[in-house]
């Protein structure tokens, strides 16, 4: 499973608040950094699903 963040993400950092193991708000570059650019470890797949559900703007896609 891979995480993709859409351009319309609002950089609010809610994903980092709730799932810091997957996301970091990068204030300097005005973007969200992913802990895993490629496949995420299977034990984090549930967290990724939850993050997709909790995102304030539905900008987290899973592939």
């Amino acid at each position: 499973m891979k995480i993709e963040i859409q351009d319309y993400c609002i950089r609010c950092g809610l994903c980092e608040d709730l799932y810091p193991q997957l996301f970091t708000l990068n204030i300097d570059d005005d973007k969200i950094d992913l802990a895993y650019d490629d496949d995420i470890p299977t034990d984090l797949e549930q967290a990724a699903q939850d993050a997709r559900r909790d995102c304030a703007i539905a900008a987290i896609f899973l592939k």
Binding site: I10, C12, L14, L18, R53, D54, C55, A56, I57, A58
Partner: peptide, 8 residues
């Protein structure tokens, strides 16, 4: 949407 606030 999700755990956000509506204005987003």
């Amino acid at each position: 949407q999700g755990k956000g606030h509506g204005a987003a």
